[in-house]
Design a protein around this nucleic acid. Structure first.
Length: 887
RNA sequence: GGGAGCUUAGCUCAGUUGGUUUAGAGCAUCUGCCUUACAAGCAGAGGGUCACAGGUUCGACUCCUGUAGCUCCCACCA
């Protein structure tokens, strides 16, 4: 490598911020000093409980967004003087985990069915200890400031006990019952799933027209249309609309089911849509929820033709043992052969899939446990509608209200082994008792049935476990042991939690139920604010998915851009509730920002400090201005946080640092090349930089800690995390300096534009003439002089030839230009300005000429218009003079 | 089928109770710069009849009505 290139190479490395080592170093430091730990104390609490990720889960972009926001809120609260606690943990995720374990067993050549429940659970725990909770480790990389010593798992012994307590309590209150219902059966997971766990997808399918012979009539048929011809084998009626003229003559008759030759009644019900298909509907009460309801109403037989795994059973008589989809294909030729198939049409319909296994849901009649929701929903609805709990964005209140008003009972049993086993114990006489333990169950049973002479061996515990959400809904209380010990110090201190950060798709599964549970067992809401994040999508608006391969690995992203960079990238474009269109370019922007800060830091550290030189006026002015500007931004940022506008808050910090601090402030106070900086200015710069790092810390914890530590001498145990966030200074009206500085900025921009247009390098000094009478603003002039490399600013009363000029605040500024000026271009620009000003004046005059405006609008508004008029007229006058001078 | 929400610059979004010059930001774009913190950078510039059509008002991006398009939620018609 040639020497010159080599030097450039070394310089490049030095100027880049390298997050990897720095991030690991500081995370270890925070852990070592237990800076995330919290215990109840005198300070007010600020609590967040993590939405527990599946114990099987690995970090994806949704987690990144969600947890970044939680960390920001927690870190900020900590610095705002709260005792901040973020409780981490994982969810046992019955179906997902059981599936993983079954898969693991299969790999080892073990069939789940060959194992006893106890044996299986042993493997499951083994799996959990070995592979579970990876996600929590990954969160550390992100910088998550969770109190890790408090990590909870929904199947920890005390958590499980709470779940069982709650079940028993609800049962005793009469809110849990056992019943035969049509449930959503997942034939792959072999369990019922709740309505919320079913997702409907549109499918291209067929509509089969099949005719049924009318009993006792020759050559008379009724034709139905169905998408599931295999269920014909379970038909127990045909239904038509009572007012449908086409079928009046069939009233009271019966039909014959094809193939199985069963005689079934023809019934009439308004449920049937006369327009659809043939107007006749086959009824299979065992395998369709609507048919089931009609069956109840019309007292129909129920014939279950499916096994639990979705194959046909003996009741079907045909195709026994064949899978339901294969049976659909195979029954068609049979129907054709028997002369019952009329025609087949293409048809698009919606089919329910299990969210967990992606298997087509089979409606199935079975005995399940249910939890009554109606009574609990009422108060839970109330607290959201009256803003005891606030939703961000607010629109989700509607969704929530609709669900709560139409809430249905919750199917809480699952036919799995991994989970909280239902504490119901069956007796030899088919009765059951519900109790916390088998021993307690025995006591109750003995009292209830004294004649049975029961022993512990007569009791058989229910084989099912509870829906995973039946433990999740207790999470905000249970992590503080607030179910078993409702009045303990921790739950009294930390509960209700401050904010819940979650995704809107679990508003019913989880959020609503937590509210119910909180009110039921604690009497208070579980959280004050609920912030709903959007869905993370790719830049083409597609959801992140494994199949599309459009989901980046967050760990790799953090290695590439730094955790700080990725955190920033996640947030830069994600207002609450709006989908985040993720693009690596956003992380790049985050990384660039890290680098910008890093270089500002390098700049300052490179200066020599002198106690012997006085503070220049421009530096003094810049410091005065920046402090006011900081205060203004701080107030704005606080306001954004109050409204949970996190990305707006970030943008405000971002601009404060990049635009105000780097682009203006540092450029003003920067000493000339190889010149020292005066002590006073230096100290103020460090102070300002420090306060900026504090403001940014919640968003970018790592780089801010690194810079903060190196700005001054720090003690071994000090951390930016433990500092107090600066507070808004409300004293005095200080907007004057902001206005004056803004004007100075305009002047600077004009001079820079002229330099660019005239191709005059920054190193060549310019003179600035100001056509103004009265006092000069020396402080701002000093700033302008520094930023624009002026040799002097002179106040004049008359125009000078050979100058470029511009107007700011109706003051004319002139710059003598040595080179030949392009008069034509100058004039063109002036004419454009003039045209703009005149058009503007016209619009103002038009308004003022409107008598109704003048008489109706508030005085203030009219005054503003008159001021606009005066200003515009003055500007036009100046522009005309300039044009005259040049012509 | 029912409900909610959205439509502002090329993209993603702000725009607080109607009136602060003729609508803002970030990114992207264009032009010129390797200037001594930073080319992952600096300086400057361009870009929008606020979806459409009406209405209310002295005045509408903002309020009302209708139309079109998009998104989400709920229901689950075979």
């Amino acid at each position: 490598m040639p020497l010159v290139n080599y030097i450039t190479y070394i310089m490049d490395i030095a100027t880049k911020y390298e997050p990897q080592l720095i991030e690991d170093k500081w995370y270890a430091f925070w852990m070592e000093h237990k800076l995330f730990a919290s215990k109840p104390n005198q300070k007010p609490s600020y609590t967040i409980v993590i939405p527990p990720p599946n114990v099987t889960g690995i970090l994806h972009m949704g987690h990144m967004l969600n947890n970044t926001i939680q960390d920001i809120l927690i870190r900020r609260a900590r610095m705002m003087g709260f005792n901040a606690l973020w409780v981490p943990g994982t969810d046992h995720a019955s179906i997902a985990t059981e599936a993983k374990v079954v898969a693991m067993l299969k790999e080892r050549g073990i069939d789940k069915r060959s194992l006893s429940r106890e044996e299986f659970l042993k493997y499951a725990w083994e799996w959990k200890e070995k592979y579970g909770g990876i996600i929590l480790k990954q969160l550390r990389k992100l910088g998550a400031s969770c109190d890790w010593d408090r990590t909870k798992f929904t199947m920890d012994p005390e958590m499980s006990e709470a779940v069982i307590d709650v079940f028993v309590d609800l049962y005793n209150k009469g809110k849990i019952y056992r019943g035969v219902r049509m449930v959503n059966w997942d034939p792959k997971a072999l369990t019922a799933v709740s309505d919320e766990e079913v997702v409907y997808k549109e499918l291209q399918s067929k509509l089969y027209y099949v005719r049924y012979k009318i009993e006792g009539a020759d050559n008379e048929f009724v034709t139905i249309a169905t998408t599931r011809p295999e269920t014909i084998l379970g038909d127990t009626a045909i239904c038509m609309h009572p007012e449908d003229e086409r079928f009046q003559h069939l009233k009271g008759k019966r039909a014959i089911v094809p193939l199985v030759n069963r005689s079934i009644p023809l019934i009439f019900d308004e449920y049937v849509d006369r327009e659809f298909g043939t107007g006749a509907l086959k009824i299979t009460p065992a395998h369709d929820i609507n048919d089931y309801n009609l069956g109840l109403k019309h007292h129909l037989d129920t014939i279950n033709i499916f096994n639990d795994n979705g194959t046909l059973n003996e009741n079907a008589q045909f195709l026994v043992g064949v899978d339901r989809f294969k049976a659909r294909d195979e029954i068609i030729p049979l129907l054709e052969k028997s002369g019952n198939l009329v025609k087949i049409e293409d048809y698009t319909n919606k089919v329910g899939f299990s969210e967990r296994t992606n298997e087509v849901i089979e409606p199935k009649l079975s005995v399940q446990w249910f939890c009554k929701m109606g009574e609990m929903a009422k108060p839970a609805l109330e607290v959201v509608m009256n803003d005891d709990i606030r939703f961000y964005p607010e629109k989700f209140k509607n969704t929530y209200a609709y669900w709560m008003e139409n809430v249905k009972d919750w199917c809480i049993s699952r036919q799995l082994w991994w989970g909280h086993r239902i504490p119901a114990y069956y007796l030899p006489n088919k009765e059951f008792v519900v109790a916390k333990t088998k021993e307690e169950a025995l006591e109750i049973a003995k009292k209830k049935f004294p004649g049975l002479n029961l022993t512990i061996h007569d009791l058989q515990q229910d084989e099912d476990v509870l829906d995973t959400w039946f433990s999740s809904w207790l999470w905000p209380m249970a992590v503080f042991d607030g179910i078993r010990h409702p009045d303990n110090e921790e739950v009294n201190y930390y509960y209700p939690t401050s904010a819940l950060i979650t995704a809107p798709d679990i508003i019913f599964f989880w959020v609503a139920r937590m509210v119910m549970a909180g009110l039921e067992w604690n009497g208070r809401v579980p959280f004050k604010h609920v912030y709903f994040t959007g869905t993370v999508r790719d830049k083409l608006r597609r959801k992140m998915s494994k199949q599309l391969g459009n989901s980046p690995d967050p760990i790799l992203l953090m290695e590439k851009f730094g955790a700080d960079g990725v955190r920033l990238g996640m947030l830069l474009s994600s207002p609450a509730g709006n989908d985040l269109l993720f693009d690596e370019a956003l992380c790049e922007q985050g990384r660039n920002f890290s680098n910008k800060i890093w270089n500002a830091f390098r700049l300052i550290k490179g200066w020599e400090i002198s106690e012997n030189i006085p503070q220049p006026l421009h530096s003094q002015t810049a410091i005065q201005w920046f402090n006011v500007r900081y205060n203004e931004a701080l107030a704005e940022i606080n306001d954004h946080f109050d409204k949970f506008r996190i990305s707006d808050a970030l943008m405000a910090v971002y601009k404060l640092i990049w635009d105000d601090f780097c682009a203006y402030f540092l450029e003003i106070v920067k000493p000339a090349y190889q010149q020292p900086v005066d002590e006073k200015t230096y100290q103020d710069i460090v102070d300002i930089f420090e306060r900026l790092m504090q403001l940014l810390h919640p968003f970018m914890p790592f780089i801010t800690e690194e810079v903060w530590h190196n700005l001054r001498e720090r003690g071994e145990n000090e951390s930016i995390m433990a500092t107090q966030m600066p507070q808004v200074d409300k004293r005095g009206d200080v907007t004057d300096i902001l206005v004056r500085f803004a004007t100075a900025q305009k002047v600077v921009e004009n001079i820079r534009r002229i330099r660019a247009e005239k191709n005059i390098a920054q190193k060549n000094p310019l003179e600035l003439l100001v056509l103004k009478q009265g006092e000069a603003d020396e402080a701002m002039d000093a700033v302008i002089t520094k930023l624009c490399n002026l040799s002097k600013i002179e106040y004049v009363t008359e125009k000078v030839g050979g100058t470029c000029s511009f107007i700011e605040q109706n003051i004319e500024y002139l710059i003598p230009v040595m080179q030949n000026m392009n008069v034509e271009e100058e004039l063109k620009k002036l004419h454009a300005d003039l045209e703009y000003a005149e058009k503007f004046l016209q619009s103002v005059l038009k308004k003022l000429a409107n008598e109704r405006f003048v008489s109706n609008a508030p005085e203030q508004v009219v005054a503003v218009e008159r001021k606009k008029q005066a200003d515009a007229e003055e500007k036009i006058k100046l522009l005309k003079e300039q044009i005259a001078n040049l012509s």
